[in-house]
Nucleic acid binder design. Structure first.
Ligand SMILES: [Zn+2]
Length: 212
DNA sequence: CGACTTTGACCGGCGC
DNA sequence: GCGCCGGTCAAAGTCG
């Protein structure tokens, strides 16, 4: 019933945070496991309903993941264009908002900034503290592309690669080649549940123009 | 020769 | 204290 509102809520959830998808799916998975254990003892009608629900949820999840990756691609290309444009126009072009908060960078990267997974305004004050501006970017690549490389226009020097606990794919560590003038770092790793999606985590902001 | 990658060593934080 | 785990270093190798 009223599947539209259901779709809307899940959409909002996923747009708020990509990691919600993983957590929710894991929770649903574990719950279905626990329910599945008891299904042989109780009724089988409810299990069929649950399976259908799971099927629907899985299809919805997949669809949302694809939509999200499309949105991320659009965002990435748009951001690249914006960076290029800003590097060609070295003016700071801060219109009038000299007040703190709502600065220019916030507007350009609000969508994909997922650093603090806070749901529903944990604390009234938007803690714009000394956190080093971590942002995540999701890039869809070919499955045959085995090298963890995200072409974002900047030049990087790889300084490490590790296998992590809950992901068979290794994680690559990069520093900006302008180091130590520029201290930006990034980590690249394939997504756990969709290996055609690379997850790049950026830390810091470049203090030099876009070398493209 | 210089810049970059590879890859095991090393280190610090955290939980037991 | 010990071991696990994520992150970094740096020596050796590779490429142009
Ligand atoms: Zn940089």
């Amino acid at each position: 019933m009223d599947s539209a509102s259901w779709i809307n809520t899940s959409l909002n959830l996923n747009i708020n945070s990509y990691t919600v998808h993983q957590q929710v799916s894991k929770k649903v998975e574990s719950k279905l496991f626990s329910l599945g254990m008891s299904k042989f003892h109780v009724k089988e009608e409810s299990t069929i309903e649950l399976e259908m629900e799971l099927k629907r949820a899985s299809a919805e999840n997949k669809k949302l993941v694809e939509m999200l990756s499309v949105v991320c691609e659009n965002y990435n290309s748009l951001k690249s264009h914006l960076m290029e444009y800003m590097s060609k126009n070295p003016e700071k072009l801060t219109p009038s908002s000299k007040k703190r908060k709502c600065e220019s960078s916030n507007k350009s990267s609000k969508i994909m900034r997922i650093n603090n997974g806070n749901s529903q305004s944990s604390y009234n004050d938007e803690e714009e503290t000394i956190r080093p501006k971590i942002s995540r970017v999701y890039v869809r690549t070919e499955a045959s592309d085995t090298s963890l490389i995200v072409k974002d226009g900047y030049q990087w020097r790889k300084y490490g690669q590790k296998v992590t606990r809950d992901n068979p794919c290794p994680r690559a560590y990069f520093k900006c080649s302008f180091a130590p003038i520029c201290l930006v770092k990034k980590k690249v790793q394939r997504s756990v549940d969709d290996q055609s999606v690379l997850v790049a985590t950026y830390e810091g902001e470049h203090n030099h123009p876009h070398p493209s």
